[in-house]
Design a protein around this nucleic acid. Sequence first.
DNA 1: AAAATATGTAAAGATATGTTTACATATAGG
DNA 2: CCTATATGTAAACATATCTTTACATATTTT
Lengths: 69, 69
Amino acid sequence: MNVVNHIREIRLKNGITQVKMAQDLKITRQTVNAIEKNKYNPSLELALKLIRYFNVPIEELFHLEGDDE
Amino acid sequence: MNVVNHIREIRLKNGITQVKMAQDLKITRQTVNAIEKNKYNPSLELALKLIRYFNVPIEELFHLEGDDE
DNA sequence: AAAATATGTAAAGATATGTTTACATATAGG
DNA sequence: CCTATATGTAAACATATCTTTACATATTTT
């Protein structure tokens, strides 16, 4: 049961670069890129920061694969 | 910026033991206990499963320390 | 009291998450 | 063309998450 994220779409919709997003969130650009490329999932802490950063409900950023859309 | 969780309260409110919860979620009882005792945060995947398991909005289970309550 | 159930904890080990440094390609603008 | 910006990726490393096994105490039930 994997986690799917829509960070790239939301990021681009807001006209934000990986660099700016990394700076704002105080993480590295590589971390942003790795998560967008699904190398691994963000930690819960980072996920909560992402929700706050984009100001969207969690379902718009993440959902469990196999869950009802 | 740490994550605070209210898993124990929600679990007890539902009359569920650590043992049953661990079996239902297919994780170990030690993991349930460690998370409730704030030894570490659940992964995002487990956090999403917890939300679904208790059927509550994420804010009732987790929030970032320092965020508005 | 004895037995069963619920919870706390610890150590060793595997895998996941994230950083640092570095190099690469692609694209847009001068 | 040259430069700046945005993105992709890799290796080495540190810490976090979770499991397995084991033992402990606390609470409830008979």
